[in-house]
């Protein structure tokens, strides 16, 4: 009897809490963020030059971008850093309002999430150790060990590309791209497959240790931020889109790209039918 009563109490409390919290959610995401004065952004801090830790400080293009957005919107930005494979599940669990990342805009992701206006190109290429003459073009990775991040679009593109090669690539999946760069330096993999802005930045930072092999092997893709697909989040995603296009027009986005990638990208305003 007592046990039954206990169970009822627990379930009752949970339901009550649930309704209390959802009653709070009367307006839409953007209105709530404005009222609270805080925009919570989830990300992974191992994705230089977008989000990374430079001597203890969280920096990168995302940090600068959201600082600008926060200024325009009049709210503070609160960052939540998680391993990449739990970033998207935690967005769905309501841990934060939007995901920085960014993530490659793909067909599979568009089915489940809403992706914002592109902020950079995401086409995948490979990076090798400097002076490695056995790899001069993308197809040279056939049959070799190549590192890539777990649960990433780059991994999917590498798999697809590997299937077209005469010999399959020996794909090593890492928790973060940083770990794959470390293994490239240690010689456990001969190359790392990642998007051009990322590996270009890493190659530049590790002056002379790594080299990017051009051209990329993947289809032309773009990076965007990720929001929830429900009606509640629509106002927020729309706002981020407007801001992105505004910053592109007034040159702020170009300046940020110049600062973090050393080059500017021509990005479309919206991606409705991604190549991948």
């Amino acid at each position: 009897m007592l046990k039954r009563h206990f169970l009822k109490t627990v379930v009752g409390t949970a339901l009550l809490l649930g309704t209390a919290l959802s009653a709070h959610a009367a307006d839409d995401a953007l209105a709530r963020i404005k009222a609270a004065g805080v925009l919570k952004v989830g990300t992974e801090t191992a994705f230089a030059p977008f989000d990374f830790i430079d001597a203890g400080e969280h920096v990168g293009l995302n940090v600068d971008f959201f600082a600008e957005l926060g200024k325009d919107l009049g709210v503070k930005i609160e960052w939540v850093a998680l391993p990449w494979d739990s970033v998207l599940p935690s967005l769905e669990a309501g841990k934060y309002d939007i995901v920085a990342g960014p993530a490659t805009i793909t067909k599979a992701r568009l089915e489940r999430f809403k992706m914002t206006s592109p902020i950079a190109e995401a086409t995948v290429a490979i990076m090798k150790k400097a002076g490695d003459t056995s790899i001069t073009k993308p197809e040279d990775i056939a049959g070799k060990a190549v590192g890539v991040g777990k649960a990433t679009a780059q991994l999917e593109q590498l798999k697809e590309y590997s299937a077209t090669l005469p010999k399959k690539v020996d794909i090593h999946e890492y928790v973060s791209f940083n770990d794959s760069y470390a293994d490239l330096a240690a010689g456990r993999v001969v190359a790392v497959a990642n998007s051009l802005p990322n590996i270009a930045f890493v190659a530049k930072q590790r002056n002379g240790a790594f080299e990017v092999v051009t051209p990329g092997f993947g289809k032309k893709t773009y990076f965007g931020f990720i929001g929830k697909k429900d009606d509640d989040s629509k106002t927020l995603v729309d706002y981020v889109n407007e801001e992105t296009i505004k910053m592109k027009k007034d040159g702020r986005l170009g300046k940020l790209q110049e600062k973090w990638f050393g080059t500017k990208f021509d990005t479309p305003d919206a991606i409705t039918d991604p190549a991948f």
Binding site: T45, A46, A48, F52, I53, D54, A55, G56, V80, A81, L82, P83, S86, K95, S176, N178, D179, Y181, A182, A185, R206
Partner: peptide
Amino acid sequence: VSVVGIIELTKMAQDLSSSTYLP
């Protein structure tokens, strides 16, 4: 606990080693 977004000692060491290349 770094998997739920807390930067404790181990996570800080990981972050620092990946940005300074001094593992």
